[in-house]
Simulated assay, not measured.
Amino acid sequence: MAEDISYTTEEIAQILKVSKLTVYDLIKKGDLPSYRVGKQMRVDASDLEAYKQQTKKSARTFEPTGSYSETAKTSQPYTISGIRPIVITGQDISLDLLAKHMEKHIPSVRPLRSYVGSLDSLISMYKGESDIVSTHLLDGDTGEYNLPYIRRLLTGSSYMVVNLIKRRAGLYVERGNPHQLNGWEDLDRPGLRFVNREKGSGARVLLDEQLRLHRIQANQLIGYDLEESNHLGVAGKVAAGEADVGVGIEKAAAIVGNVDFIPLIQEQYDLVLLKKPENMEWISAVMNILCSTAFQNELRSISGYDLSLTGQVLYET
């Protein structure tokens, strides 16, 4: 019977043509009733239909261009009661501050955070699953950050690349640096216990590029396959004595404590924004936020950030 049909969050996302993050946001706000079966959230077909009908009414109220179905036909962005969800990917706290300012100053959007690595962020943008992606990917051959990867992955897209911050990256080592590790070339020392980041993260790409440039085989590193999903996890493993060295950013070492940081490179942490006609209004507002004194003062309060390029457009198609 139709009333017995229910859907998973993945199925709801496919039906509504939105990301799973948007579905979770609807459930969290109570707009879409749900219940749990084991580890899986489910939504009854009747509740989904009721939500769609309510959304159509809201679209007529907030969208002067027509009804929900007419909006879909013209490929306008999906909205929640007239408010468009904007997915921001990346793990740095600067992105959380950006989301906060967007929520405050751009009432037509609802920022949603997705905590994924740089390569996965760009892939999600290519697939149409994110709106603002952050990336810090080093091309070892040119020494250039981000643009070589962006150009390859977003071929045919119209986009702009804007600097958010610059920050120092390097090695986490045990307090006092007992192994006297001072550079990438020192990673080939036998017996060192390593802790890594997940594939697709900027730190993992940085490590792999440096290993390639210094002709160090990954299988020489004990623990190369031991992965953590963020900088704090890597720094924490070193601080706890479970590893001798890991790669990450300076700020995480200060937060974790009981670990030393060896700075080796100034990495560029950039934002990519797709230049679709329906995006231009909120992109303009985001640019204003990035260049605002209030936003930059909040960034300055966090140690380890270089704001010399913050808000500058580095590349535009």
Score class of each variant (00 low, 15 high):
Ile283Met: 08
Ala50Thr: 06
Leu271Glu: 08
Asn196Val: 02
Ser118Gly: 07
Gly304Arg: 10
Ile88Phe: 08
Glu316Asp: 07
Tyr224Ile: 15
Leu273Asn: 04
Ile283Cys: 06
Ile88Tyr: 05
Gln220Ala: 14
Ala294Arg: 03
Ile12Gln: 01
Glu70His: 12
Pro148Phe: 15
Tyr149Gly: 04
Leu221Trp: 05
Val161Lys: 11
Glu227Phe: 06
Met287Glu: 10
Lys73Met: 06
Asn279Ile: 12
Asp260Val: 09
Tyr68Asn: 02
Thr55Arg: 13
Pro190Met: 13
Arg42Leu: 03
Ser121Val: 08
Pro111Glu: 06
Gln268Met: 14
Ser108Cys: 01
Tyr224Pro: 05
Leu153Ile: 13
Ile15Trp: 01
Ile123Trp: 04
Ser114Asp: 10
Thr135Glu: 08
Leu232Asp: 04
Gln53Leu: 10
Trp282Lys: 04
Met287Phe: 02
Ile123Ser: 04
Ser67Trp: 03
Gly66Gln: 00
Val87Asp: 01
Glu103Asp: 12
Ile249Glu: 14
Ser201Arg: 00
Ala59Pro: 00
Lys251Phe: 11
Arg212Ile: 02
Gly246Met: 09
Pro277Arg: 05
Thr293Arg: 07
Thr61His: 13
Thr22His: 04
Arg197Leu: 03
Ile106Pro: 12
Ala254Gln: 15
Glu278Ala: 14
Phe261His: 05
Arg197Thr: 04
Leu21Ser: 15
Asp4Gln: 14
Leu153Glu: 11
Leu226Ala: 11
Ser201Trp: 03
Met280Leu: 15
Ser58Cys: 06
Pro77Thr: 04
Val195Ile: 12
Tyr149His: 13
Ser19Val: 02
Gln210Leu: 00
Ile302Leu: 14
Arg110Asn: 13
Val161Ala: 14
Glu3Trp: 14
Thr155Ile: 12
Val234Met: 01
Ile249Gly: 06
Met280Arg: 06
Leu309Gln: 09
